[in-house]
């Protein structure tokens, strides 16, 4: 019963988000508010190698590459939060070349065409790549956010993550579908 109610509520939220999206760029669609929360939560379930941080208190950078589907939600979510000693900051990149020191990089659907280049550019760097482009996990994005039955589910290419020196918590892995070449 509660799950039905929740689903109805979620649906209403999603409808509201779709309807309101064009007229208010600052507000993301409800789906992306969830995804923004997911991005923040990934910072809790993934561990980076030490060299990924300049110092013990260096910020964990969550960046959006391409169009920002989250509006101000992502910033609102991470404001005041920390991962251990690291504060959280949000950045926006329009091109992969801009990407410098970054820990979680959301690759928007607007970058679908340049996805292979982007992945190529990020290879070997300690950056968790996340995208909601369909099948992106198969292509090398580490976490693909998939909308299934109105629920955001994850497909995780753990091989890509390991290749980049990242460790994804088994709790997270338990929730996701593991895809990609066997590394």
């Amino acid at each position: 019963m509660s799950s039905i109610l929740r689903r109805i509520a979620l649906l209403a939220v999603l409808c509201g988000a779709l309807g309101l999206a064009p007229c208010s760029p600052a507000k993301a669609a409800p789906e992306y508010r969830v995804k923004a929360a997911f991005l923040f939560n990934f910072s809790q379930f993934v561990s980076w190698p030490p060299q990924a941080f300049a110092s013990a208190t260096a910020p964990v950078v969550i960046a959006v590459l391409g169009r920002n589907p989250f509006g101000s939600d992502l910033i609102a979510i991470v404001r005041g939060e920390r991962v251990g000693e690291h504060p959280l900051i949000v950045r926006q990149y329009s091109d992969v070349s801009e990407v410098d020191r970054c820990h979680i990089l959301f690759i928007d659907r607007s970058e679908t065409a340049r996805l292979p280049q982007i992945l190529e550019a990020l290879r070997g760097r300690n950056i968790l790549t996340v995208s909601d482009i369909d099948g992106s996990a198969q292509t090398g994005v580490m976490i693909d956010l998939v909308n299934r039955d109105h629920h955001i589910r994850m497909e995780i290419n753990n091989g890509a993550a390991r290749a980049s020196g990242l460790t994804i918590s088994s709790d997270l892995l338990r929730l996701a579908r593991i895809v990609g070449p066997k590394a």
Partner: peptide
């Protein structure tokens, strides 16, 4: 400890 992910990623089934 086991239910963090379920809560974090909104997975009541899990």
């Amino acid at each position: 400890a086991n239910s963090t992910a379920a809560l974090a990623f909104d997975n009541p089934g899990d």
